[in-house]
Amino acid sequence: MSKVIVVTSGKGGVGKTTSAAALATGLAQRGHRTVVIDFDVGLRNLDLIMGCERRVVFDFVNVINDGIRLHQALIKDKRVENLFILPTSQTRDKEALTREGVEKVIAELRKEFAYIICDSPAGIERGAQMALYYADEAVVVTNPEVSSVRDSDRILGILNSKSRRAEIGEEPIKQHLLLTRYDLDRVQRGDMLKLDDVLEILAIPVLGVIPNDPLVLQCSNVGMPVILEPKSKAGQAYRDAVARMLGEQVELRFTQPQKRGLVDWLLRRSA
């Protein structure tokens, strides 16, 4: 049984592509045949983050519009077994994807892959709707700030109304919250929303909390999904999220301030 999982958010720049790349890589590392598709036509950067941009010949849009076979466009990852990337076009616009075309590609991928991860463009319009239409599950990427939470709320509404599952009355898309760029200091100071505040508004199960981590940018600059960097806290948090996706019970990390030293403790006790 294959699963189509859309990584979506409404808002741009919250970490969708970073997350899609990390989750897909993590699932493949755990032995599941996985493909990650770039739905962000015209702004492709999944291939950059996955470090395969120098190997792209054909893309998703060619498969849909130009009769290129899927296998000519799929790129096999060089580092991780079982991992494939379907890049997108930079010279077309979102109109290049048709519902029928996407359906055919997904159906073909389902025959071969256990997980099909769809990296959605920002927004709630056509492009984002195309990416989520065939999804079985959704990872809603949210940053701990009000505007991002609002946009996630809107995308949750669209998942419930404009997806194939909603239209044909099947069981609704399973929704997961992935809270990213979580900056504990700023949350403590009250500059950013706490996990609990976000949960109160969105009310969906938490797949993970990914700390804000400068290594994320460093990794994407060299074309490596951050989950492959053992030193990265964000990478560790993505690994936990993958384990939860596979049904394992893993406690949330990076959501509580670290225990400070003895002095701290004494101070707090005397306060």
């Binding site: 054909f58 060619n62 130009d66 009769g67 290129i68 076979r69």
Partner: peptide, 14 residues
């Protein structure tokens, strides 16, 4: 025929 044609023109599809 069509598969080969389509492959050929894909190099400059637009």
């Amino acid at each position: 025929f069509l598969a080969k044609l389509v492959e050929k023109i894909a190099y400059a599809p637009d």
